[in-house]
C-alpha cells in the first residue's frame, strides 16, 4: 500500500512539475480558461435573465446547472482528458507500445502518466465559485446533508465525464489518425448548458438511459432544487453516484477489451 502511494505520489509530482515548466504559459492559460468559461456563464445568465426564466428554471438555477457540468468536467478531465484524447497519437508514435512494457495495469498507467493535468484547476476554481454564488442566491442552506449530497453528485458526475472520455478513446484503437467521436461528445455536451427538459421526451429518455449525460448535471440539480421538470421524477438524481460508477466501469471494461484486441491484432 505504501509502495502504491509512493508510486502515485511520484506520478503526481512529475505531472505538476511538467505543468509548471512554463509558469507564464500556465498562468496565462489559467486566466484564459477562466475568461472562456466565464464568458459561457455570462451569456447563459444574460440569455435566461432577459426572458425571466427558461422552462421554469431561473437564471440562477441554470447557472447552477452549468456549474455542475463544468466542475464535474474539471475533475473527470483532470484524470482522463489527455490519456483519452492523446491515445491515437501515442499509438501512432509507438509511445503506447512502449508503455505496455511497464509492469503496471496499462489503463492505470495511461491515467497516471498522461492524466492529472493541473490546467483543470482553472475550470474547478471558476465552477466552484459560480456554484457557491448560485447556491447562495437560490437560498440552499449549507446544511451537512446538502453538502454531502452535492459532493456525491459531483463525484458521480465526474465519473460519468471521465468515463465518457475513456469511451470515446476506445474508438482511437481503430481510428488512429483522427477520432471524430470526441467532437461528437463535446458537441453533445451542449445539451447540458440548459435543462434537458426543454427537449422532447424522446431525447430526454435518450439522455437518461442510453447516453446518461443527464446525470452529469440535470438530475443532480433537479434533485437538489426539488424541481419537477422533465419526464422523470425529480428524485431520479439520487442514483447519480451509481450511474457514475456504472459508466466508468463499462468504459474501463471496453477499453481493456479493445486493448486485448490491439494485443492480438496490432491495430
Amino acid at each position: 500500500m505504501k509502495k502504491k502511494l509512493l508510486l502515485y505520489g511520484t506520478f503526481l509530482r512529475l505531472r505538476i512539475l511538467m505543468n509548471f515548466q512554463y509558469p507564464t504559459s500556465y498562468w496565462l492559460g489559467f486566466v484564459g480558461q477562466i475568461i472562456s468559461y466565464g464568458a459561457t456563464f455570462c451569456t447563459i445568465f444574460i440569455a435566461v435573465s432577459s426572458f425571466g426564466s427558461l422552462n421554469g428554471w431561473t437564471a440562477d438555477e441554470v447557472l447552477l446547472l452549468y456549474a455542475f457540468e463544468l466542475i464535474s468536467y474539471a475533475i473527470g478531465a483532470f484524470f482522463c482528458f489527455h490519456p483519452s484524447t492523446g491515445l491515437a497519437n501515442n499509438i501512432r508514435s509507438g509511445a503506447f507500445d512502449a508503455s505496455l512494457t511497464k509492469p503496471m495495469n496499462p489503463f492505470l498507467f495511461q491515467i497516471l502518466n498522461y492524466g492529472q493535468d493541473a490546467a483543470y484547476f482553472s475550470h474547478f476554481t471558476l465552477s466552484l465559485c459560480v456554484m457557491i454564488f448560485a447556491l447562495v442566491r437560490i437560498g440552499i442552506t449549507p446544511a451537512l446533508g446538502n453538502i454531502v449530497a452535492i459532493i456525491l453528485f459531483i463525484l458521480g458526475a465526474s465519473a460519468i465525464q471521465g468515463g465518457f472520455l475513456v469511451l470515446c478513446s476506445v474508438f482511437s484503437f481503430k481510428m488512429v489518425n483522427e477520432n471524430p467521436i470526441f467532437t461528437l461528445f463535446f458537441e453533445s455536451k451542449n445539451f447540458l448548458k440548459y435543462p434537458i427538459s426543454i427537449y422532447g421526451s424522446g431525447l430526454q429518455v435518450l439522455l437518461t438511459f442510453v447516453l446518461p449525460l443527464g446525470f452529469i448535471n440535470f438530475y443532480p440539480s433537479q434533485c437538489l432544487l426539488s424541481k419537477e421538470s422533465g419526464v422523470f421524477h425529480y428524485q431520479l438524481g439520487i442514483i447519480t453516484p451509481l450511474v457514475g460508477v456504472a459508466v466508468f466501469v463499462v468504459a474501463y471494461l471496453l477499453w481493456m477489451w479493445r486493448l486485448r484486441h490491439y494485443n492480438s491484432s496490432g491495430s
Binding site: K3, L6, T10, F11, L14, L17, M18, Q21, K102, M104
Partner: peptide, 16 residues
C-alpha cells in the same frame, strides 16, 4: 519525460 530533468524519469522507474 521530454520537459523534465532525466533524473525525474529515473525516479519514476525506481517506483514503477
Amino acid at each position: 519525460y521530454w520537459d523534465l530533468p532525466v533524473i525525474d524519469s529515473y525516479q519514476l522507474n525506481r517506483r514503477l
